[in-house]
Protein backbone atom coordinates (compact mmCIF):
# COMPACT_ATOMS: atom_id res chain seq x y z
CA UNK A 1 0.00 0.00 0.00
CA UNK A 2 1.41 3.42 -0.95
CA UNK A 3 1.48 6.10 1.72
CA UNK A 4 -0.99 8.95 1.26
CA UNK A 5 -0.12 10.89 4.38
CA UNK A 6 3.07 10.86 6.39
CA UNK A 7 3.17 12.64 9.71
CA UNK A 8 6.74 13.09 10.91
CA UNK A 9 7.72 14.05 14.43
CA UNK A 10 4.96 16.66 14.79
CA UNK A 11 5.16 18.77 17.93
CA UNK A 12 2.68 21.35 19.15
CA UNK A 13 2.76 23.34 22.34
CA UNK A 14 0.09 25.62 23.82
CA UNK A 15 1.82 27.71 26.45
CA UNK A 16 3.04 25.32 29.11
CA UNK A 17 1.07 22.40 27.71
CA UNK A 18 2.85 20.07 25.32
CA UNK A 19 -0.14 18.85 23.31
CA UNK A 20 1.88 16.84 20.78
CA UNK A 21 5.33 15.53 21.66
CA UNK A 22 6.60 14.38 18.31
CA UNK A 23 3.95 12.20 16.69
CA UNK A 24 4.90 10.07 13.70
CA UNK A 25 2.65 7.84 11.65
CA UNK A 26 1.81 6.85 8.10
CA UNK A 27 -1.57 6.44 6.44
CA UNK A 28 -1.96 4.32 3.32
CA UNK A 29 -4.28 4.99 0.42
CA UNK A 30 -7.73 3.60 1.06
CA UNK A 31 -6.77 2.72 4.60
CA UNK A 32 -8.94 3.36 7.65
CA UNK A 33 -6.82 4.35 10.61
CA UNK A 34 -8.37 4.53 14.04
CA UNK A 35 -7.11 6.83 16.75
CA UNK A 36 -7.97 5.98 20.33
CA UNK A 37 -7.01 7.83 23.45
CA UNK A 38 -8.45 9.43 26.54
CA UNK A 39 -9.66 13.02 26.60
CA UNK A 40 -6.64 15.29 26.55
CA UNK A 41 -4.39 12.67 24.93
CA UNK A 42 -3.83 14.95 21.91
CA UNK A 43 -6.24 13.39 19.41
CA UNK A 44 -8.02 16.67 18.68
CA UNK A 45 -4.81 18.64 18.37
CA UNK A 46 -3.44 16.01 16.00
CA UNK A 47 -6.43 16.05 13.65
CA UNK A 48 -6.66 19.84 13.81
CA UNK A 49 -3.05 19.97 12.69
CA UNK A 50 -3.84 17.71 9.74
CA UNK A 51 -6.98 19.66 8.83
CA UNK A 52 -5.19 23.02 8.80
CA UNK A 53 -6.62 24.51 12.00
CA UNK A 54 -3.29 24.39 13.90
CA UNK A 55 0.20 24.70 12.50
CA UNK A 56 2.78 22.36 13.98
CA UNK A 57 5.66 23.94 15.90
CA UNK A 58 7.99 21.26 14.61
CA UNK A 59 7.89 18.28 12.27
CA UNK A 60 6.20 17.97 8.92
CA UNK A 61 3.27 16.57 7.02
CA UNK A 62 3.75 14.93 3.65
CA UNK A 63 0.90 14.25 1.24
CA UNK A 64 1.99 11.71 -1.37
CA UNK A 65 5.56 12.63 -0.65
CA UNK A 66 5.19 16.41 -1.03
CA UNK A 67 5.41 18.61 2.07
CA UNK A 68 2.11 20.19 3.15
CA UNK A 69 2.08 23.74 4.49
CA UNK A 70 -1.50 24.24 5.63
CA UNK A 71 -2.39 27.73 6.74
CA UNK A 72 -6.14 27.28 6.97
CA UNK A 73 -8.86 24.62 6.80
CA UNK A 74 -9.63 25.94 3.34
CA UNK A 75 -6.14 25.03 2.16
CA UNK A 76 -6.56 21.58 3.63
CA UNK A 77 -9.79 21.14 1.69
CA UNK A 78 -8.08 22.28 -1.46
CA UNK A 79 -5.44 19.61 -0.87
CA UNK A 80 -8.21 17.00 -0.59
CA UNK A 81 -8.35 16.73 3.19
CA UNK A 82 -11.95 16.87 4.34
CA UNK A 83 -12.92 16.94 7.99
CA UNK A 84 -16.35 15.85 9.11
CA UNK A 85 -16.93 17.71 12.32
CA UNK A 86 -19.13 16.54 15.13
CA UNK A 87 -21.49 19.45 14.49
CA UNK A 88 -21.39 18.49 10.80
CA UNK A 89 -21.51 22.06 9.47
CA UNK A 90 -24.52 21.56 7.24
CA UNK A 91 -27.06 24.26 6.46
CA UNK A 92 -30.28 22.87 7.96
CA UNK A 93 -32.63 24.93 5.81
CA UNK A 94 -31.06 23.93 2.53
CA UNK A 95 -31.65 20.72 0.65
CA UNK A 96 -29.27 17.79 0.47
CA UNK A 97 -28.14 18.76 -3.03
CA UNK A 98 -27.68 22.41 -2.07
CA UNK A 99 -25.50 21.36 0.85
CA UNK A 100 -23.30 18.98 -1.10
CA UNK A 101 -22.74 21.60 -3.79
CA UNK A 102 -22.57 24.60 -1.45
CA UNK A 103 -19.85 26.98 -2.60
CA UNK A 104 -19.28 24.99 -5.80
CA UNK A 105 -22.66 25.16 -7.53
CA UNK A 106 -22.68 24.29 -11.22
CA UNK A 107 -24.07 27.18 -13.28
CA UNK A 108 -25.92 27.45 -16.56
CA UNK A 109 -27.02 30.45 -18.61
CA UNK A 110 -30.73 31.28 -18.42
CA UNK A 111 -32.00 33.23 -21.46
CA UNK A 112 -28.44 33.19 -22.67
CA UNK A 113 -27.09 35.78 -20.25
CA UNK A 114 -28.23 35.11 -16.66
CA UNK A 115 -26.00 32.79 -14.63
CA UNK A 116 -28.30 30.53 -12.59
CA UNK A 117 -27.69 27.42 -10.53
CA UNK A 118 -28.03 24.31 -12.66
CA UNK A 119 -30.58 22.46 -10.53
CA UNK A 120 -31.10 19.71 -13.08
CA UNK A 121 -27.42 18.83 -12.98
CA UNK A 122 -27.39 18.83 -9.17
CA UNK A 123 -30.47 16.59 -9.13
CA UNK A 124 -28.85 14.11 -11.48
CA UNK A 125 -25.47 14.03 -9.73
CA UNK A 126 -27.05 13.66 -6.29
CA UNK A 127 -29.36 10.89 -7.42
CA UNK A 128 -26.33 8.94 -8.65
CA UNK A 129 -24.36 9.71 -5.54
CA UNK A 130 -27.13 8.74 -3.11
CA UNK A 131 -27.61 5.50 -5.03
CA UNK A 132 -23.94 4.72 -4.57
CA UNK A 133 -23.87 5.12 -0.80
CA UNK A 134 -27.24 3.58 0.19
CA UNK A 135 -28.06 6.56 2.36
CA UNK A 136 -31.85 6.10 2.32
CA UNK A 137 -32.20 9.84 1.80
CA UNK A 138 -35.46 10.38 -0.15
CA UNK A 139 -34.26 12.93 -2.74
CA UNK A 140 -31.90 15.82 -3.39
CA UNK A 141 -34.47 18.44 -2.34
CA UNK A 142 -34.97 17.00 1.13
CA UNK A 143 -33.95 19.62 3.65
CA UNK A 144 -31.23 18.62 6.06
CA UNK A 145 -33.52 19.53 8.96
CA UNK A 146 -35.80 16.67 7.90
CA UNK A 147 -33.00 14.10 8.14
CA UNK A 148 -31.97 11.86 11.02
CA UNK A 149 -28.52 12.11 12.59
CA UNK A 150 -27.17 9.20 10.56
CA UNK A 151 -28.54 10.62 7.33
CA UNK A 152 -26.81 13.91 8.08
CA UNK A 153 -23.54 12.03 8.50
CA UNK A 154 -24.26 10.41 5.16
CA UNK A 155 -24.69 13.84 3.55
CA UNK A 156 -21.36 15.04 4.97
CA UNK A 157 -19.66 11.85 3.81
CA UNK A 158 -21.30 12.06 0.38
CA UNK A 159 -19.94 15.58 0.05
CA UNK A 160 -16.41 14.37 0.73
CA UNK A 161 -16.91 11.52 -1.72
CA UNK A 162 -18.32 13.66 -4.49
CA UNK A 163 -15.57 16.25 -4.29
CA UNK A 164 -12.92 13.56 -4.52
CA UNK A 165 -11.41 14.00 -1.11
CA UNK A 166 -8.21 11.99 -0.63
CA UNK A 167 -8.42 11.91 3.13
CA UNK A 168 -11.53 12.14 5.28
CA UNK A 169 -11.17 12.80 8.99
CA UNK A 170 -14.15 11.63 11.02
CA UNK A 171 -14.19 12.90 14.57
CA UNK A 172 -16.45 10.70 16.71
CA UNK A 173 -19.01 10.41 13.93
CA UNK A 174 -21.21 7.98 15.83
CA UNK A 175 -21.11 9.66 19.23
CA UNK A 176 -24.68 10.99 19.03
CA UNK A 177 -26.27 8.26 16.95
CA UNK A 178 -28.64 5.39 17.64
CA UNK A 179 -27.14 1.90 17.28
CA UNK A 180 -28.69 1.22 13.87
CA UNK A 181 -27.47 4.52 12.51
CA UNK A 182 -23.97 3.98 13.84
CA UNK A 183 -23.81 0.81 11.78
CA UNK A 184 -24.69 2.79 8.68
CA UNK A 185 -21.95 5.35 9.32
CA UNK A 186 -19.41 2.59 9.83
CA UNK A 187 -20.51 1.13 6.52
CA UNK A 188 -20.02 4.50 4.89
CA UNK A 189 -16.51 4.82 6.28
CA UNK A 190 -15.71 1.45 4.70
CA UNK A 191 -17.35 2.61 1.46
CA UNK A 192 -14.97 5.58 1.38
CA UNK A 193 -12.01 3.24 1.80
CA UNK A 194 -13.31 1.03 -1.01
CA UNK A 195 -13.18 4.06 -3.30
CA UNK A 196 -9.52 4.52 -2.40
CA UNK A 197 -10.14 7.37 0.04
CA UNK A 198 -8.15 7.24 3.27
CA UNK A 199 -10.00 7.71 6.53
CA UNK A 200 -8.91 8.76 9.99
CA UNK A 201 -11.56 7.57 12.41
CA UNK A 202 -11.74 8.78 15.98
CA UNK A 203 -14.03 6.92 18.32
CA UNK A 204 -14.39 6.17 22.02
CA UNK A 205 -16.34 3.02 21.24
CA UNK A 206 -13.46 0.53 20.98
CA UNK A 207 -15.34 -2.49 19.56
CA UNK A 208 -16.69 -0.23 16.82
CA UNK A 209 -13.24 1.23 16.21
CA UNK A 210 -11.67 -2.22 15.87
CA UNK A 211 -14.53 -3.24 13.58
CA UNK A 212 -14.19 -0.38 11.11
CA UNK A 213 -10.42 0.29 11.08
CA UNK A 214 -7.63 -1.53 9.30
CA UNK A 215 -5.15 -0.24 11.83
CA UNK A 216 -5.42 1.53 15.16
CA UNK A 217 -3.06 3.74 17.09
CA UNK A 218 -3.30 4.91 20.68
CA UNK A 219 -2.42 8.40 21.89
CA UNK A 220 -1.34 9.01 25.46
CA UNK A 221 -0.30 12.42 26.78
CA UNK A 222 0.63 13.83 23.40
CA UNK A 223 2.48 10.76 22.19
CA UNK A 224 1.67 7.85 19.98
CA UNK A 225 2.27 4.94 22.33
CA UNK A 226 0.90 2.02 20.39
CA UNK A 227 0.06 0.99 16.87
CA UNK A 228 -1.21 -2.31 15.50
CA UNK A 229 -3.35 -3.93 12.88
CA UNK A 230 -6.92 -4.23 14.17
CA UNK A 231 -6.81 -7.97 13.73
CA UNK A 232 -3.72 -8.34 15.93
CA UNK A 233 -4.86 -6.35 18.91
CA UNK A 234 -7.74 -6.37 21.34
CA UNK A 235 -9.91 -3.99 23.25
CA UNK A 236 -8.07 -4.88 26.46
CA UNK A 237 -4.71 -4.09 24.95
CA UNK A 238 -5.94 -0.71 23.69
CA UNK A 239 -7.32 0.17 27.11
CA UNK A 240 -4.02 -0.73 28.76
CA UNK A 241 -2.21 1.73 26.49
CA UNK A 242 -4.90 4.40 26.76
CA UNK A 243 -4.58 4.42 30.53
CA UNK A 244 -0.78 4.34 30.41
CA UNK A 245 -0.74 1.03 32.31
CA UNK A 246 1.29 -0.87 29.70
CA UNK A 247 3.88 1.89 29.56
CA UNK A 248 4.69 1.64 33.25
CA UNK A 249 4.70 -2.12 32.85
CA UNK A 250 7.38 -2.03 30.19
CA UNK A 251 9.17 0.93 31.65
CA UNK A 252 8.75 2.94 28.41
CA UNK A 253 9.50 6.64 28.69
CA UNK A 254 6.29 8.53 27.93
Amino acid sequence: MTALLEVKNVKKRFGAVEALRGVTFTLGEGEVLGIAGDNGAGKSTLIKTISGVHRPDQGELLLKGTPLQLRSPREARAAGIETIYQDLALADHLGVGANIFLGREPLRWALGFLPVIDTAKIAQEITNLLGRIESHIPDHETKVMDLSGGQRQAVAIARAMYWKARLVIMDEPTAALAAMESKNVVKLARALADEGISVIFIDHNLPELLGVCDRVMVMYRGDKVFEASSKETSQDELVRYMTGYSLRDKGVEA
Partner: peptide, 20 residues
Protein backbone atom coordinates in the same frame (compact mmCIF):
# COMPACT_ATOMS: atom_id res chain seq x y z
CA UNK B 1 -32.01 30.84 -8.84
CA UNK B 2 -28.59 32.36 -8.25
CA UNK B 3 -25.55 31.65 -6.11
CA UNK B 4 -26.08 35.02 -4.43
CA UNK B 5 -29.50 33.90 -3.17
CA UNK B 6 -28.28 30.44 -2.22
CA UNK B 7 -25.43 31.90 -0.16
CA UNK B 8 -27.82 34.35 1.49
CA UNK B 9 -29.91 31.46 2.82
CA UNK B 10 -26.84 29.37 3.64
CA UNK B 11 -25.31 32.15 5.74
CA UNK B 12 -28.56 32.57 7.65
CA UNK B 13 -28.94 28.86 8.16
CA UNK B 14 -25.39 28.16 9.31
CA UNK B 15 -22.78 30.88 8.84
CA UNK B 16 -19.99 28.56 10.00
CA UNK B 17 -20.86 25.99 7.36
CA UNK B 18 -20.89 28.70 4.70
CA UNK B 19 -17.46 29.85 5.86
CA UNK B 20 -16.05 26.32 5.81
Amino acid sequence: KTRFGRYTLAIGSNAESARR
